[in-house]
């Protein structure tokens, strides 16, 4: 029995390490400053992924900017204000269900709603909004979970001093749950990096270099989508593997960042909240 376990463990680890090594071996030789810093051209044939990198950054920023206030706001409402526990339970159940839906369905709905109905056409913004809907439940849940970790005795202590609801939330509840929100953002960023299906429908696969606001309104491929396009439609496997390697490095970075943040916030919690402003 022990041997079988050992073999399973060995195969699992072997596969993971195998994939990583394979992708890096095939991809890293193609990563060059030229690849990272230029746009692609047809004549002469040239591949550069700068637009894809920028698109990825734009879409992450746009998604987070919309997602954080919405998700955290909803969580705060559900945890701190909502009085009807049945409604809360229904919303939580809906969120749970939403997060289990395959992303391609979000893509389809996002295309019909944001691109067609809302008139955004195929654009980074439409893609970002689709990602917002996809990731909202998760950021709401992580925020809710961290709101639950703020001891009730803090809230009571503040209420007993005559503080109103909003002051209590702002001064003793929120500082205790920023870590949840930030961790949620990091996880969401990871998922956005990895998303392709939903974006193929909504953000398209253009490789043009745009400024942020221009970019929002134009179609554009993120790195993951570009990976698909280069490999599947253009047969450019060198570029595809280079992007794959970059994505892996980014994912690794994001995971370490998440871990570091968690430790950092635990330490901060021990040191206490930042102080309030006073007039001199």
């Amino acid at each position: 029995m022990k041997t079988i376990m050992w073999i399973s463990a060995f195969i699992t680890c072997g596969l993971i390490i195998g994939i990583i090594v394979y992708v890096f071996a095939k991809g890293i030789p193609f990563i060059s400053w030229d690849l990272l810093s230029t746009s692609p051209t047809y004549i002469p044939p040239h591949i550069g992924i700068l637009p894809d990198i920028m698109n990825t950054i734009y879409i992450v920023i746009a998604s987070l900017v919309v997602m954080v206030p919405l998700g955290a706001g909803a969580a705060i409402y559900l945890e701190e204000y909502a009085t009807n526990q049945k409604v809360v339970a229904v919303i939580e159940y809906a969120a749970e269900t939403l997060s289990g839906i395959p992303s391609i369905i979000y893509g389809l709905v996002g295309m019909l709603f944001f691109c067609e109905f809302a008139g955004l056409r195929t654009s980074i913004l439409a893609g970002a909004l689709t990602l917002v809907i996809m990731n909202l439940p998760s950021i709401m849940r992580t925020t809710q979970e961290s709101l639950k970790t703020v001891p009730q005795s803090y809230r009571e202590g503040a209420f007993a001093l005559g503080a109103g609801k909003w002051r209590v939330i702002r001064t003793v509840v929120l500082p205790g749950c920023v870590d949840g929100i930030i961790t949620g953002c990091v996880l969401a960023t990871g998922r956005i990096l990895g998303e392709s299906a939903a974006l193929l429908f909504t953000a398209g696969f253009a490789h043009t270099l745009n400024s942020f606001f221009e970019g929002l309104m134009s179609p554009g491929a993120t790195l993951t989508v570009a990976l698909y396009v280069y490999a599947k439609e253009q047969g450019e496997f060198g570029a595809a593997f280079a992007i794959a390697a970059i994505l892996m490095i980014l994912t690794l970075g994001i995971n370490s960042l998440a871990m570091w943040l968690e430790r950092h916030f635990r330490k901060m919690r021990e040191q206490g909240y930042p102080q309030e402003k006073t007039k001199e």
Partner: peptide, 23 residues
């Protein structure tokens, strides 16, 4: 149940709540 803030901010919490701002 002190708040996870400085000793000073704990004591100042109530007065600040009721509008005392001056240092």
């Amino acid at each position: 149940n002190p708040f996870p803030m400085s000793v000073y901010d704990n004591v100042a919490y109530g007065p600040r709540t009721h509008g005392t701002k001056s240092r």
